[in-house]
Write a protein that binds this DNA or RNA. Sequence first.
DNA 1: TCTGGGGTCCTAGGACCC
DNA 2: TCTGGGGTCCTAGGACCC
Length: 415
Amino acid sequence: MTGTATILHADLDAFYASVEQLLDPSLRGKPIAVGGGVVLAASYEAKAFGVHGGMLGRRARALCPELRFVSGHFADYQRLGDAAIGVLGDFTPLVERISIDEAFANVAGSEHLFGSPEDMAKTIRKRVAAEVGLPISLGVAQTKHLAKIASQVAKPDGLVVVHPGTEGDFLHDLPVELMWGVGPVARARLAGIGVFTIGQLAQTPGWSTESLLGRAVGGKLAALARNRDPREVVTHRRARSVGAQSALGKKPAVEGVFGPTLRHLADRVASRLRAKSRAGRTVTVRVRFADLRAVTRSVTLPAAISATAILAETAEDLVRAALADHPNEAAISLLAIAVSHLEYNPVLQLELPYRLADEKRRPGTKKGTARWLADRAVDAIRDRFGRESIGYGSVVLGRRGAVPDAFRELAEREL
DNA sequence: TCTGGGGTCCTAGGACCC
DNA sequence: TCTGGGGTCCTAGGACCC
């Protein structure tokens, strides 16, 4: 493979925390955490103490006594993330946004206008610093995977270019967990067969599922590790599923607990679907027990749904079935609902009031339509008066320990 | 590194069809 | 009636990413 390295990967450093430090200069250079009960994001200064996202606030404070907690400025995250990633768009239309703070760009067609990819990367970093005020790291390489690794190596606030022909040298001594798809489990399995660096991985023979390597990390990942696949930069990607979840601490596994919670989750998911004229055929629930073991149950319906009540009832049936399979589990710590097999849902589509429990009483299509129309009325009221004005209030959940809705929304994929 | 919330993808077994 | 092979869909579990 010859040619130029034209794939850029841009990644804002400790994004939420950097935004807080930008907005409030007194926080700069200090260990800070966004959030309260749970750490949503930590600054580099806090990470040095071992503080990281997802950690309980109490534990973070124990690790770092001078840690400052700040409540998030979520609207600013969206605005500043868009502004920073938007700079990439000035160099090429081929931008693939991965998340609020990360994107790929293919600048192959832009060199005659802006110079080498390395020059563009330097300019992007300067412009993001000057115009947005945030540190951003960039990786430049011939493939997405390699560009992503390069930006990780470049952090914080740096630039790494992997020139064609030097990939082997660049990767040789890097730890395997820098590869996309290698997490804690694969890392431990690889360590078990004596593989710690990407160089060692490259020298390990075989990638079939029967090989040592294949058994350690799975055939697909092993093949990917050796064949470096040139996945393309895709500008528009549709979500394949929509979901919502809620951690419960430790609650009894009874109808009175999971019923209201599932209705609330179903409301979140179904209203998002309706807002984008989408519906889905497969409903999946996840039940996590007190010991953190989790099970899933799913069902694929004959027709796609987006009515809150039907989704809630389907989810309740699935949770009941899951609990019945685990009669010794008395407490649940998390409930989740996801809808997949998404379809475009023309405005007036009817829904089958299909249920696991009473498939027989099917010809009640009227009931399904009535529910869908009622949902649309609720959606309209919320559009005018706000989400909390009507419906399954989050009050039901008791809110304690929950993350702000604004934070959840930042994580939502475009439907 | 005992854990929040939104997602994607892979694997494996079984049902069912041709 | 049994056997073989290929393909697709569904379900459950799990790893991983941001």
